[in-house]
C-alpha cells in the first residue's frame, strides 16, 4: 500500500496540472478538485501509514499503546479538506457566474484585464 500511494499521488498531481492548463472551464474545475485531492492524499501519506491502531489512550495508561497512527496529519487533513471544499465550491460558483456573463467556456477569451488599454 505504501508503495502504491506515492504513485497515485504523482498521477493525480500530473493529471490535475494537465487539466488546469486546458482552456475549458470544466476541465479547470476538475483540475482544481484533483489538485486538492492529490495534496490531501500527500498529507495523509506523509504521516506514515499505520493500520488498525488509533491514538486513543486507555483509561489506566498515560500514553497510547504503540503502534498507533499519528493523529496530527489526520487533523491537518481534516482541516485541509474542509478549507479546500470551501474554496472549490466558491470557484465553481465563480466559474458559473463567469460563464453566465461572458457566454464563453474558453479561458483564452479572458485576456482583457491583461491588455494595455490604448484608446480609452
Amino acid at each position: 500500500m505504501e508503495l502504491i500511494l506515492p504513485f497515485i499521488i504523482g498521477i493525480l498531481f500530473s493529471a490535475s496540472l494537465y487539466l488546469i492548463l486546458h482552456r475549458h472551464f470544466f476541465k479547470l474545475i476538475l483540475g482544481l478538485i484533483l489538485f486538492g485531492l492529490a495534496t490531501n492524499l500527500f498529507l495523509f501519506v506523509i504521516g506514515r501509514l499505520t493500520r488498525g491502531g488509533s491514538a486513543i489512550i486507555e483509561p489506566d495508561e498515560n500514553v497510547a499503546v504503540e503502534p498507533f497512527a499519528d493523529p496530527v496529519p489526520q487533523a491537518l487533513l481534516l482541516t485541509a479538506i474542509v478549507i479546500g471544499f470551501g474554496i472549490q465550491s466558491f470557484t465553481i460558483v465563480l466559474i458559473k457566474r463567469v460563464y453566465q456573463s461572458f457566454g464563453t467556456t474558453d479561458l483564452d477569451d479572458m485576456n482583457t484585464t491583461d491588455q494595455i488599454e490604448e484608446n480609452h
Partner: peptide, 8 residues
C-alpha cells in the same frame, strides 16, 4: 469576474 478567476 475575470480578475477573480485568475486570482482564485
Amino acid at each position: 469576474l475575470e480578475g477573480a478567476i485568475k486570482y482564485v
